[in-house]
Amino acid sequence: MTDKTDIILIINGRAHAISVEPRKTLVDAIRDDCGQTGTHIGCEHGICGTCTIILDGDAVRSCLMFAVQADGRHIRTVEGLADGETLHPLQQAFITHHGLQCGFCTPGFLMLAVNALEHNPNIGDDELLDVLASNLCRCTGYQNIIKAVRAARDEMRGAKAT
């Protein structure tokens, strides 16, 4: 039960060599073993999306995976979104449009939406709603989250065009 496995998690480009029990969830490893506490846990049963990270280019729920399954793979978390002091356009849009209150769901929504926008910069409003419907927020009523993500999409698209 307490046999540990040595693995490497590459989080936001930095390798973390850690030793975990095979049953340790990825989110626990990211938070407790690698100290990256920006990724949150809201349910641990795969529904709320608070724990969403980007794993090798896909948004995944890190509470539904074991850390050992992510050995050697590239993980992106909320801590890696900003470029130094410059916020990612989506982070800025969340601030501008008051897309967060308590902020607990925010890292999950940011990673979910960043992934969607990276996969499809021209994603339509309806498709965007389908994406955002997979995470829960209990504070905002979603309206401002939707506004923020649409604004960031438009801005990122504009930036690319110029």
């Binding site: 909320v78 979104l81 601030i95 940011l110």
Partner: peptide, 10 residues
């Protein structure tokens, strides 16, 4: 909060 520096109980 948008940069992952919040400090919640956990």
């Amino acid at each position: 909060l948008v940069t992952g520096r919040g400090r919640y109980a956990g």
